[in-house]
Amino acid sequence: MATSTPQPGEDAGDIKAVPVRHYGRWAVAAVVLVVVASLVYSAANNDRFKWDIFGDYLFSDRVMRGLWLTMWLSVVATVIGVVLGTILAVMRLSTNPVLSTISLVYIWAFRGTPVLVQIFLWAFIGSIYPEITFGVPFGGPDLISSNSNDLIKPITAAILGLGLNFAAYQAEIVRAGLLSVDEGQVEAAKALGMTGANTMRRIVLPQAMRVIIPPTGNQAIDMLKTSSLVSVIAVSDLLYSVQLIYGQNYQQIPLLFVACFWYLLLTTIFTIGQYYLERHYAKGNLRELPQTPVQRARAMAASVRFGGTGNSI
């Protein structure tokens, strides 16, 4: 017999309390639903959106080729940026004054000029240095020589422009992460006889990742969209492909929506990747990892099936 005031030695059983009801949330949700529904209705019934053209071009060959180029260009430039940025950050924090100065000047130059201008400069490098040669400097003999325009095609200029600029920003992100790791971790590693390089690689960097990943994900997503700048040097990425199409048929709006649809899809995929990466590096910092959305959904489905009390909204 359970009573409201537990007697000594009596077990009142598991708590089955009625959760607090959040009427305000339901009311706001209802208002938002109405607004969204009306927006969707108006978009669907406005002929000027030309959804039929949107549908015609969504999977067209030219759009697909542009999408593919945007995808790999962003990934390659991001990888270059992350790797080079990490190296620059480690150099910047090094006790070696030569390395830290090189890093400082690099960041100063590449962060201090617009990325659009950098892309242009790489594309037009042939007009400054028509030949790129490797040999003895200050007028010595050449060993290897090549025409700049052959060596640096527009796509190479795009990769260099985007990747090298990304690296300058990434260097500062990584540096912030490295500085966030407690000095005691470095001292402990030193006291155990670990070298500076090993301490960085095995102790400091892995712990800095937790701080580095969120802004890096932000940068990577930004890269997907910044990569559209390469349309100015006639690299046929997603945006440029769409521009070429509406240059012929003058259907700007539906084709720009096509581009937006694919950009949104790509950023969504990147965001999911970032979520799982963050989870991986949260190891040791949280006593218990939070459930993934998939795990949460499963738990909810199970609780509904077995009639338990799930989390109410």
Binding site: D182, E187, A188, I203, Q207, K283, G284
Partner: peptide, 11 residues
């Protein structure tokens, strides 16, 4: 060496 704040590698 053993430190006041332990300094175990957190990860």
């Amino acid at each position: 060496m053993v430190f006041q704040r332990f300094n175990l590698f957190a990860h």
